[in-house]
Design a protein around this nucleic acid. Structure first.
Lengths: 111, 111
DNA sequence: CTTATATGTTCTACATTCTAGTACATGGAA
DNA sequence: TTCCATGTACTAGAATGTAGAACATATAAG
């Protein structure tokens, strides 16, 4: 038994990074906006929540209900925070990738 | 229409990097071995070929038949090479991720 | 020759992830 | 009390990720 590592999917990694970056201000709608800006894509809110839920189920993040009365109406926020396991997964994922990318000249294909 | 970028999946990125790194020596079995070492996981050969096929269908890599007679028997190899579009996809994928990771202290969670 | 063996690829099927879209919830403003 | 803005939850289908067994082919052994 060689302790198979667990890597993050592409979007999982993106979302996890967004939550980490947002810190105290990480809630669904904001995460969506952050991801959309970084990826320059239209990211649907459903995609974000589905991924957040999956990450939470895996123990990479944790969520809780926020205040129900912000400045101007609206539903209560659900905040997220990255757990230790999440940081570890992020590191492992990057490490494996870096092992392959390291030293390869990128930018002009052999093609 | 805002020209939606096309990002690579986790495993697609890994496999594409392996092909790039292997250069002249990139063929299925070798790619598998390289990926297995970098990820420290048991990667099935089927997983690798399925991904290589998808990458080729998308125009990120190209393949051709190699010599049929290596040192000691065996079937002819199928070689792979990364195309310009592949390098571009690799760069776009990394760029979006970096935009999120940049400046975030990683290593010790907020948790 | 015929079989064994090593190297490599193909094919198939199923699990997980990705993604969009729509419905639902709730507080303040008109 | 209806409307609007902000947010979250749910559902379903497409795309990716993954394993495993079958197939192909060249050399070595006898």
């Amino acid at each position: 038994m060689t302790e198979q590592k667990d890597y993050l999917g592409h979007f999982e990694e993106i979302v996890l990074l967004a939550v980490l970056r947002l810190g105290e201000n990480a809630y669904g709608a904001k995460v969506r906006q952050t991801v959309a800006e970084a990826t320059e894509r239209d990211v649907s809110i459903g995609a974000v929540y589905a991924t957040l839920d999956r990450l939470e189920r895996k123990g990479y993040i944790k969520s809780w209900q926020g205040e129900a009365t912000p400045e101007r109406g609206g539903r209560a926020k659900r905040y997220f925070r990255v757990e230790g396991a999440g940081v570890r997964a992020l590191n492992d994922t990057a490490a494996a990738r870096n092992r392959l990318a390291d030293g390869v000249e990128f930018g002009l294909g052999t093609a």
